[in-house]
């Protein structure tokens, strides 16, 4: 509804022609894109702040929370469990040959479970959540925006952030740890099943190695990271929905961009948090066991 202040300010310079003009055009275009980006970033930051503000105040009612929690948590479990199992088994298939050529099959448990618990479990659960729930939320809120339902909420004295965003945010934030643990568990179980029953790796060594190298801290790191993923998914999806362009096309775009942006955010956060958590880990336990 508000007009975009950047769209109208380019005219005077771009009128100049020639190579210099082209360069100036390029710079102004680039500057325009950059400014749009910064405005978008500022906008989403404001959106997050308003959500956090409402989180500190009054919580939404049970009737608005429970359906969202059901959507986000319960209905996502099967798909997260399924992908978790397969990723565990795929990891074993992929690494078995290399590890056997070095006669390190028994270490397989440590490597696979470590990467599952620290990386793949959380990232996979978050990706599934972004795909299954994030884009659906963006489409739903986008439809509400386009059909003026969000305006109707406002006229009826309900704050749309409080009423629509906070329950979804809480749902993603509070249930993604459970989904992550589910992905971890099914991945570990799937890998164990494939390694021990199908490839015949000695189960005692497989488990002992895992126990030795994968600790509570690794589990904690994965679950801790997932909280950030969940928050990012909810904020991005709701923001895209709230700022949906008119029409069916706008709703479709809101859904796809919600997923793409969430996925990029997940990977970016994963990298940053991974670096930070490693720093913390080696500061806390300088003489931690090394794998090789």
């Amino acid at each position: 509804m508000e007009t975009n202040p950047t769209s109208d300010i380019r005219d005077p310079i771009s009128a100049s022609g020639g190579p210099l003009g082209a360069a100036v055009d390029w710079i102004t275009d680039f500057g325009g894109v950059l400014i749009d980006w910064l405005i978008g970033l500022g906008d989403i930051a404001m959106f997050s702040l308003r959500t956090f503000g409402w989180l500190l105040g009054r919580l939404p009612r049970k009737e608005t929370i429970i359906p969202n929690f059901y959507q986000i948590g319960v209905l996502s479990l099967p798909v997260v469990a399924l992908t978790g199992t397969f990723i565990g088994m795929v990891l074993v298939v992929q690494s078995y040959v290399q590890f056997r050529s070095m006669h390190l099959e028994a270490k397989l448990g440590a490597v696979i479970n470590m990467s599952l618990v620290r990386e793949l479990g959380p990232v996979l659960a978050a990706t599934m959540l972004a795909g299954r729930v994030g884009s659906a939320m963006a489409a739903e809120l986008g439809t509400m925006r386009v059909t003026e339902q969000i305006d109707a909420l406002v006229t009826m004295g309900a704050n749309p952030i409080h009423y629509l965003v906070v329950p979804r945010f809480l749902g993603c934030l509070m249930l993604i740890p459970a989904l992550t643990i589910m992905a971890d568990f099914m991945g570990v179980a799937g890998a164990f099943f494939y390694a021990v029953y199908l490839l015949g790796i000695d189960s005692h060594h497989y488990l002992e190695n895992s126990r030795h190298f994968v600790g509570n801290f690794d589990l904690f790191v994965g679950v801790f990271k997932s909280l950030f993923f969940g928050a990012a998914i909810a904020i991005i999806a709701c923001y895209r929905g709230f700022n949906c362009n008119p029409g069916a096309e706008g709703v479709g775009r809101a859904a796809t961009t919600a997923f793409v942006y969430s996925f990029v955010a997940i990977l970016l956060l994963d990298l940053l948090l991974g670096i930070a958590m490693d720093g913390i880990y080696f500061a806390l336990w300088p003489e931690a066991p090394k794998l090789f």
């Binding site: 059909t147 006229t155 009826m156």
Partner: peptide, 20 residues
């Protein structure tokens, strides 16, 4: 603003019912 809005009733052109 919210407090003032409660004093209004607004009928939208396309009704804008909450479809959930």
């Amino acid at each position: 603003l919210t407090r003032q809005r409660i004093r209004f009733g607004f009928l939208f052109q396309q009704a804008a019912l909450f479809d959930s």
